[in-house]
Structures are given as structure tokens and as C-alpha cells.
Amino acid sequence: MNDQQLLRYSRHILLDQIGIEGQQALLDAHALVIGAGGLGAPAAMYLAASGVGKLTLVDDDTVDLTNLQRQIIHGTASVGQPKVQSARAQLQSINPEIEVVALQERAGDARLRELVAGATVVLDCTDNFATRHAINRACVAQKVPLVSGAVIRFDGQVSVFDPRSGQQPCYSCLFPQDQQFADEACSTMGVLAPLVGVVGAMQAAEALKLIMGIGTSLAGRLLLLDGLHMEWNSMRVQRDAACPVCGAGALSA
């Protein structure tokens, strides 16, 4: 690190658990953020500010006026622009030293495996079960840790699914992909704006910990936030030995 970097990241370096070694791990890391909306906005901003050396943003949508209530990475002037381009400009203004790759696309299974293979950590900031399961399959196949978040109305959740040891549950253990779960969209159900910031920031914190190998991650736990009463609950998530994604007989494992 040069003198400017030592100064920029000094508040990290002061932490005994991080130090210069941990900050260098961040600078050498590649975070893949899928979704540049409510969750992806704060998550990506904190990853950029923290010095993650390469960020890849994947989203096929454009900025709409209704997004601005909560998607703080975008501004009024960005309406109509691709979200990844708007986000890239903001992230580079926060930290011009990092590399930001903007991919305006909806990635399918094969493409996700390709993208995940080059990442240190993946953040799922999407809003539908089909995409979440596709991301999970790619992360299990490539053995890359996944940080998952979701928010709707006044409720949020966040967890980590880490396939590297082969002992932890995956997203499909919690929400089996062969079961039907109703997608609930902000466009029809609404969402309290700051809650996506809370969950997105927690996703960034978990991603940073995973990159640096510090602390205890949320792997095997699901945190649930009741934002209306501001209460957190934690539940254990067990690995399903028969899971078609991460179980012993899984084709994608």
C-alpha cells in the first residue's frame, strides 16, 4: 500500500483484527454484487469505501423515479440510465482507486458460474427466488461464499451460505428450490426505505469479514429483522443431507 492508501484505510488498519494484512486482503479481493437496487446500493458503496479492489455489478434494469426512495446509489439525474452505469459512476467517485465492472445483463446459470468463478465473495442483492437459487447453485458449484439479503415491507433477513467446507447449509437447504415460494415485489407490497440500507450494510460487513477471514460469519444462521418494532431474531439453519444442490448426491456440487 502507498501512503495515500495507508491514510484512506487507516481506521481499518487501526483495528487489531484487520491491520495492514487484512486491508491488503480487501485490496486484492473481487466482490461480485448481483443487483444494483435497494440492497446492492449500500452494499456496493461500503465495499467500495472499504477498499475492495474489484467490484463487479450485475443488473439488467434502468433507474426509475420510484427507485430513488431507497436506492441511494442513484440520483435524480440517473433516471433512465442503466443501474450498473449509474452505480459505477457513484462508486468511482467514492473510491477512484478501485476497479468497477458494470454488466448490464440478466445472467443465467452458465453465465453465473463463469462470473462466480472469478469472485472472492458473492452478494445476492436480487428480489426473486429463481435468481437467488441460480446464484446459490453457482456458488455451491464454484465453492464461493454467498451473502444473501432480502427486505419487503418492514421485514428484512440476512445470512451467509459458505460452501467451502462442505459442512454448511446452502440457500436451497433453507428455501428448497423444488418448493413454491411467492415472490413479493416492492412495487406491489412496498418497503420502508432505511431497512434496505440496514440489510445491505450488513451484507457488506459479512462480505468484508469473509474476505479477511475474521470473526464469525452468519453461515448456519438466519437473522430476521422486524423493522416495525425494531427487533432482531436469529434462527439456526441446518444442512439438508438430501439437498439437490449441496447434498452428497448433488449434481452441481
Rank of each mutant, 00 (worst) to 15 (best):
L225C: 08
V199Q: 00
V191E: 04
G190L: 06
F129P: 00
C125V: 05
L32D: 04
Q92D: 03
A204I: 03
M1Q: 05
Q69K: 11
L208D: 01
G35K: 01
R164T: 12
A25R: 14
Q23Y: 09
Q23I: 03
E21L: 09
A219C: 09
S159Y: 04
A130L: 14
G220Q: 09
E21S: 11
L91G: 01
Q203N: 02
R113T: 09
Y171K: 02
L39T: 00
L225P: 00
C125L: 10
L146V: 00
S252I: 07
L57K: 04
V116A: 06
R113D: 12
V198E: 03
Q85S: 10
L251D: 09
D16I: 01
L224E: 04
R111P: 03
V191Q: 07
I152Q: 06
L195D: 00
R113K: 14
L57F: 05
L222G: 04
A25H: 10
S165A: 13
Q85Y: 13
E184Y: 11
A102R: 12
G75Y: 05
D59I: 08
K83N: 09
V121I: 12
P42F: 00
D127H: 06
V79W: 12
P244K: 09
A119P: 01
Q81K: 15
D16R: 15
V198I: 15
L208W: 03
F129G: 03
D28T: 07
V121K: 02
